[in-house]
Simulated scan of single mutants.
Amino acid sequence: MLAGCAAAGVAAASCSATGSLPRSDAGGARTRAVHLVARAWHTDVDLPADRLPPALLPLAQDFPGATHFLFGFGERAYWTKPEPSSTDALAALIPGPGVILVTALRAPPPAAFPPKDVVVLPVAEEGLDRLGAFLKAELREDGEFRRMADGPYPGSRFYATSRRYSAAYTCNTWVADALHVAGTGVAPAGILFAGQLMRRARAAADAAGRQPALARTPLAPAHRAVP
């Protein structure tokens, strides 16, 4: 089944909620990186643990020893069910509450996932600050930081969000917005599916001249998630 992007296999009109996003210009030398990770039809974006804003430091307390955190968005009722049905997947097409899955890693994503599933995107320090601010705002429901159920992977957990999921605003749209905020050069308009986002991100990485050859990217066992 689809991981968090319940509507990814269904055609829908494209709509990206980017109108209120922060500025995304790099504003400095791109000396850091964020990572786009594909998990089948779903995508995640990472933030280094040393760049968590103060409001998200509870994540470091929830997962001691983590060096990176992956963030993904999905439909709440569908994604948090241990065994969602096809009826649940169809219901997820209707706009409804979203949820954010956080997965803690003890290694950078290129060392934890197959090379084909990771895109390295250079950003400025200011871009990490903007990404952290975006994630801080998204991991809130009614102004509160709220833990929910354990996630489907070792070292993962669901957290509440006020963001609503729909067939026109999927997990991949949300990640595209996050990458745009960070100043990666990835344009979010029209993104619904993981393949679209991965292709656009690879093009942005190639344009920046910082995407390493996939064959030279180390591969580590499993996801190195924090137990």
Rank of each mutant, 00 (worst) to 15 (best):
D25F: 14
A26E: 05
G27R: 06
G28Q: 11
R30P: 07
R32I: 02
A33W: 12
V34R: 09
W41R: 15
W41C: 15
L47A: 04
P48G: 01
P48V: 10
P48M: 03
D62S: 14
D62N: 09
P64Y: 10
F73R: 05
E75F: 06
W79I: 00
T80D: 03
T80S: 13
K81C: 03
P84Y: 07
P84K: 07
P84H: 06
S85V: 01
D88A: 09
L90H: 05
A91D: 10
A92L: 04
A92Q: 02
P95L: 12
P97A: 14
I100C: 12
L101V: 11
L101T: 12
L101S: 14
T103W: 13
L105G: 00
A107W: 03
A107M: 10
P109A: 06
P109E: 01
P109I: 00
A112N: 00
P114V: 09
V118Y: 00
V118I: 03
V118F: 11
V123L: 06
E125C: 03
E125I: 01
E125Q: 13
G127S: 05
G127V: 02
D129A: 13
D129M: 03
D129E: 13
R130A: 06
F134Q: 01
K136E: 15
E138N: 13
E138A: 15
L139I: 05
D142F: 13
F145H: 12
R147K: 15
R147W: 12
M148W: 11
A149V: 12
D150N: 15
G155M: 11
G155F: 11
R157Q: 13
R157T: 10
F158I: 05
Y159S: 04
T161S: 10
T161G: 04
S162D: 15
R163V: 14
R163F: 07
R164E: 13
